[in-house]
């Protein structure tokens, strides 16, 4: 673990990858360090925002150095199942890029169990890891200015669902009617770091209500 300074009230803990970030995040949630206000996981790092009245860099570095991430049990989270109509505009392109047929793309996307590595880009936008290596496709060369809420998409090592309408450059596989973002709920996002996720193919189900 490498500890990087970040201004007067934060540190960035850098580890080797998503799995280590998840372990570090889980360890610090299970045993919170005094004075730590917020933890923000990302791809290789965990941002630790702290109250500079209650703690300081030296104390935090010592506490982080004493952690043994190998001893942290994996996070046990409930599994969220997301029903998807696989009728996305980029399905043929994803099939072409991966050398699979469209039904094979759908079969592989629904076969895997994913985990929310981190959120970002927009409120409630969760980066899901665990994508079948055959489905690792680059993002679109020209991003769309408008991707509808509920769009299920793929890019590089991640898959995800657009919680609200926004611009976006990921390859669109389909859409879900599940509400992923509700600011009146607690937590407002259905998908939080550590959540396990599966996709279920409902393309063939009856007409939409």
């Amino acid at each position: 673990m490498r500890i990087l300074s970040y201004g007067t009230r934060a540190l960035l803990a850098e580890v080797s990858g998503l799995d280590q970030v998840a372990r570090l995040h889980a360890a610090l949630r299970r045993h919170p360090l005094p004075g730590v206000l917020e933890l923000v996981p990302a791809a290789r790092t965990l941002l630790i925002r702290y109250d500079r009245v209650l703690t300081d860099r030296t104390r935090l570095v010592a506490a982080l150095g004493a952690l043994d991430l190998r001893a942290v049990p994996p996070v046990e989270a409930e599994t969220v199942v997301i029903p998807v109509r696989y009728q996305g505009e980029d399905l043929p392109e994803v099939a072409r890029l991966s050398g699979l047929t469209v039904p094979q793309v759908i079969a592989r996307h629904t076969a895997a169990t994913y985990q929310v590595a981190f959120c970002g880009f927009a409120p409630g936008f969760a980066y899901l890891t665990g994508v079948d290596p055959a489905l690792r496709v680059p993002r679109r060369t020209v991003p769309r200015t408008r991707v509808p809420a509920g769009a299920v998409a793929l890019a590089d090592e991640f898959t995800g669902v657009y919680p609200r309408e926004s611009p976006g450059g990921w390859q669109l596989l389909g859409s879900t009617e599940l509400t992923l973002w509700n600011p009146a709920a607690d937590p407002p996002s259905l998908l939080t770091p550590g959540t396990a996720v599966r996709f279920r193919d409902v393309t063939a189900d009856g007409a939409e209500p």
Partner: peptide
């Protein structure tokens, strides 16, 4: 709104 950055807020 502190405390929601892990959810992208």
């Amino acid at each position: 709104r502190p405390g929601h950055a892990a959810l992208g807020v």
